[in-house]
Computed example of a mutant assay.
Amino acid sequence: MIKKMFLAVMVVSALVSCTTGNIGNPSSNLTLRLSGLEPLGDDFVYEGWLIVNGAPVSTGVFSSVDFPQTFSVKPSTLHRATKFVLSIEPANDVDPAPSMTKILVGDFTGNVASVSSNGVVGDFSNASGKYILATPTNGGDTDELSGIWYLDLSSGTPEVGLDLPVLDGGWKYEGWVVIDGVPVSTGTFSDIADFDDNAMTSPFKGDMGDGPAFPGEDFLQNAPSGLSFPLDLRGYATVISVEPYPDNSPAPFTLKPLLHIIPENADDHVTIPMEDGPLADLTGTVVR
Rank of each mutant, 00 (worst) to 15 (best):
E89H: 15
E89N: 15
P90I: 01
P90R: 04
P90K: 09
N92C: 03
D93G: 08
V94N: 12
V94Q: 13
P96W: 04
A97E: 08
A97D: 10
A97T: 11
P98K: 01
M100S: 13
T101Q: 06
K102A: 06
I103D: 09
L104P: 05
L104M: 14
L104A: 06
G106M: 08
D107I: 10
F108K: 09
G110L: 04
N111E: 14
N111F: 04
V112A: 04
A113T: 03
A113H: 05
A113G: 13
A113F: 05
S114H: 05
S114V: 13
V115E: 08
V115K: 10
S116R: 04
S117Q: 12
N118S: 10
N118R: 15
N118M: 10
N118Y: 01
G119S: 05
V120S: 15
V120L: 12
V121I: 14
D123F: 03
F124N: 03
F124Y: 07
F124H: 01
F124M: 08
S125K: 09
A127Q: 01
A127M: 02
K130N: 12
K130T: 04
L133T: 00
L133W: 00
A134Y: 02
T135M: 11
T135P: 13
T135L: 13
P136F: 05
P136H: 01
T137Y: 10
N138P: 07
N138I: 10
N138M: 12
G139R: 07
D141Q: 15
E144G: 01
E144A: 12
I148T: 01
I148S: 02
W149F: 14
W149S: 08
W149K: 11
W149Q: 05
Y150P: 02
L153R: 05
S154D: 12
S154W: 01
S154P: 08
S154F: 07
S155V: 06
G156R: 12
P158C: 08
P158G: 09
E159I: 07
V160W: 09
V160A: 14
V160D: 14
V160R: 12
G161H: 06
G161E: 05
L162P: 07
L162F: 10
L162V: 11
D163V: 10
D163P: 00
D163I: 07
D163E: 06
L164N: 10
L164D: 06
L164H: 13
P165A: 03
D168L: 03
G169E: 13
G169A: 11
G169S: 14
G170D: 07
G170C: 05
W171Y: 12
Y173T: 01
Y173K: 10
E174G: 06
E174M: 11
E174W: 06
G175R: 05
V177D: 05
V177L: 07
V178Y: 05
V178W: 09
D180P: 00
D180Y: 04
D180S: 15
D180M: 03
G181L: 12
G181V: 13
G181T: 07
V182Y: 06
P183H: 03
P183F: 07
T186I: 13
G187Y: 11
T188S: 08
F189R: 05
F189K: 05
S190E: 14
S190Y: 04
D191Y: 15
I192V: 15
